[in-house]
Protein backbone atom coordinates (compact mmCIF):
# COMPACT_ATOMS: atom_id res chain seq x y z
CA UNK A 1 0.00 0.00 0.00
CA UNK A 2 2.97 2.31 0.56
CA UNK A 3 3.28 3.12 -3.15
CA UNK A 4 -0.48 3.53 -3.55
CA UNK A 5 -1.52 6.86 -4.98
CA UNK A 6 -4.34 8.94 -3.68
CA UNK A 7 -7.15 9.03 -6.25
CA UNK A 8 -10.15 11.30 -5.94
CA UNK A 9 -13.29 10.98 -8.03
CA UNK A 10 -15.24 14.23 -8.08
CA UNK A 11 -18.95 13.74 -8.77
CA UNK A 12 -20.95 16.87 -9.55
CA UNK A 13 -23.87 15.69 -11.69
CA UNK A 14 -27.26 14.24 -10.82
CA UNK A 15 -28.00 10.69 -11.98
CA UNK A 16 -30.03 9.82 -15.14
CA UNK A 17 -30.20 13.31 -16.71
CA UNK A 18 -26.67 12.84 -17.98
CA UNK A 19 -24.36 9.83 -18.18
CA UNK A 20 -21.64 11.24 -15.87
CA UNK A 21 -22.77 9.58 -12.64
CA UNK A 22 -22.94 6.10 -14.15
CA UNK A 23 -19.64 6.54 -16.00
CA UNK A 24 -17.92 7.63 -12.81
CA UNK A 25 -19.27 4.65 -10.89
CA UNK A 26 -18.06 2.24 -13.57
CA UNK A 27 -14.60 3.75 -13.63
CA UNK A 28 -14.46 3.54 -9.83
CA UNK A 29 -15.45 -0.14 -9.85
CA UNK A 30 -12.92 -0.97 -12.55
CA UNK A 31 -10.08 1.02 -11.03
CA UNK A 32 -10.70 -0.63 -7.65
CA UNK A 33 -8.76 -3.59 -9.06
CA UNK A 34 -5.58 -1.51 -8.87
CA UNK A 35 -5.51 -1.22 -5.07
CA UNK A 36 -5.13 2.53 -4.86
CA UNK A 37 -6.24 4.87 -2.09
CA UNK A 38 -9.59 5.96 -3.51
CA UNK A 39 -11.89 8.73 -2.30
CA UNK A 40 -15.27 9.55 -3.80
CA UNK A 41 -16.56 13.05 -3.26
CA UNK A 42 -20.02 14.33 -4.05
CA UNK A 43 -20.44 18.06 -4.72
CA UNK A 44 -23.28 20.14 -6.18
CA UNK A 45 -25.95 17.93 -7.82
CA UNK A 46 -23.62 14.96 -7.38
CA UNK A 47 -25.07 14.52 -3.89
CA UNK A 48 -28.30 13.34 -5.53
CA UNK A 49 -26.53 10.21 -6.76
CA UNK A 50 -26.69 8.81 -3.24
CA UNK A 51 -30.38 9.54 -2.61
CA UNK A 52 -32.30 6.61 -1.17
CA UNK A 53 -35.43 5.26 -2.82
CA UNK A 54 -34.66 5.72 -6.52
CA UNK A 55 -37.38 4.05 -8.62
CA UNK A 56 -36.52 4.10 -12.31
CA UNK A 57 -39.21 1.85 -13.77
CA UNK A 58 -41.16 4.87 -15.00
CA UNK A 59 -38.25 6.21 -17.06
CA UNK A 60 -37.17 2.78 -18.31
CA UNK A 61 -33.61 3.31 -17.21
CA UNK A 62 -31.50 1.02 -15.08
CA UNK A 63 -31.43 2.02 -11.42
CA UNK A 64 -27.73 1.86 -10.66
CA UNK A 65 -27.94 3.30 -7.15
CA UNK A 66 -27.78 -0.11 -5.39
CA UNK A 67 -24.22 -0.45 -6.71
CA UNK A 68 -23.03 2.30 -4.35
CA UNK A 69 -23.74 -0.14 -1.54
CA UNK A 70 -21.34 -2.63 -3.14
CA UNK A 71 -18.43 -0.16 -3.04
CA UNK A 72 -17.50 -1.53 0.37
CA UNK A 73 -16.91 -4.97 -1.19
CA UNK A 74 -14.57 -3.23 -3.64
CA UNK A 75 -12.66 -1.69 -0.70
CA UNK A 76 -13.84 1.78 -1.63
CA UNK A 77 -14.83 3.14 1.73
CA UNK A 78 -14.04 6.84 1.66
CA UNK A 79 -17.18 8.67 0.59
CA UNK A 80 -17.49 12.39 1.24
CA UNK A 81 -20.47 14.69 0.76
CA UNK A 82 -20.22 18.46 0.70
CA UNK A 83 -22.31 19.95 3.48
CA UNK A 84 -23.29 23.12 1.63
CA UNK A 85 -24.43 21.16 -1.45
CA UNK A 86 -26.45 18.76 0.69
CA UNK A 87 -28.18 21.57 2.56
CA UNK A 88 -28.97 23.60 -0.57
CA UNK A 89 -30.91 20.55 -1.77
CA UNK A 90 -32.89 19.95 1.38
CA UNK A 91 -31.09 16.68 2.07
CA UNK A 92 -29.69 15.25 5.29
CA UNK A 93 -27.32 12.36 5.99
CA UNK A 94 -30.35 10.09 6.54
CA UNK A 95 -31.30 10.54 2.88
CA UNK A 96 -28.24 8.67 1.64
CA UNK A 97 -28.15 4.97 0.83
CA UNK A 98 -24.61 4.54 2.16
CA UNK A 99 -22.63 5.91 5.10
CA UNK A 100 -20.83 9.10 4.16
CA UNK A 101 -18.64 11.67 5.84
CA UNK A 102 -20.02 15.18 5.52
CA UNK A 103 -17.37 17.85 4.95
CA UNK A 104 -17.58 21.60 4.68
CA UNK A 105 -16.50 23.24 1.44
CA UNK A 106 -13.22 24.29 3.09
CA UNK A 107 -12.49 20.76 4.33
CA UNK A 108 -13.30 19.43 0.86
CA UNK A 109 -10.77 21.81 -0.67
CA UNK A 110 -8.10 20.66 1.75
CA UNK A 111 -8.84 17.01 0.96
CA UNK A 112 -8.52 17.78 -2.75
CA UNK A 113 -5.07 19.27 -2.16
CA UNK A 114 -3.86 15.99 -0.65
CA UNK A 115 -4.58 13.95 -3.80
CA UNK A 116 -2.16 12.65 -6.40
CA UNK A 117 -4.82 12.23 -9.06
CA UNK A 118 -8.21 13.95 -9.35
CA UNK A 119 -10.79 12.70 -11.85
CA UNK A 120 -13.79 14.88 -12.56
CA UNK A 121 -17.27 13.69 -13.56
Amino acid sequence: MSDAKKFMFVNRKAPYGTIYALESLEVVLISAAFDQDVSLVFLDDGVYQLKKGQQTKGIETKNFSPAYRALEDYDVEKLYVEKEAMEARGLTEEDFLVDVTVLSRAEMGALMDEQDVVLSF
Binding site: N63, P66, R69, Y74
Partner: peptide, 15 residues
Amino acid sequence: DEYQIAPAVRVLTKA
Protein backbone atom coordinates in the same frame (compact mmCIF):
# COMPACT_ATOMS: atom_id res chain seq x y z
CA ASP B 1 -30.40 -8.73 -7.35
CA GLU B 2 -29.08 -6.80 -4.36
CA TYR B 3 -26.49 -4.51 -6.00
CA GLN B 4 -27.35 -4.52 -9.71
CA ILE B 5 -23.79 -5.40 -10.67
CA ALA B 6 -21.92 -8.60 -11.38
CA PRO B 7 -18.98 -8.53 -8.96
CA ALA B 8 -15.36 -8.62 -10.09
CA VAL B 9 -13.61 -11.95 -9.39
CA ARG B 10 -11.70 -10.51 -6.45
CA VAL B 11 -14.91 -9.24 -4.90
CA LEU B 12 -16.76 -12.47 -5.66
CA THR B 13 -14.03 -14.54 -4.02
CA LYS B 14 -14.14 -12.47 -0.86
CA ALA B 15 -17.93 -12.41 -0.71
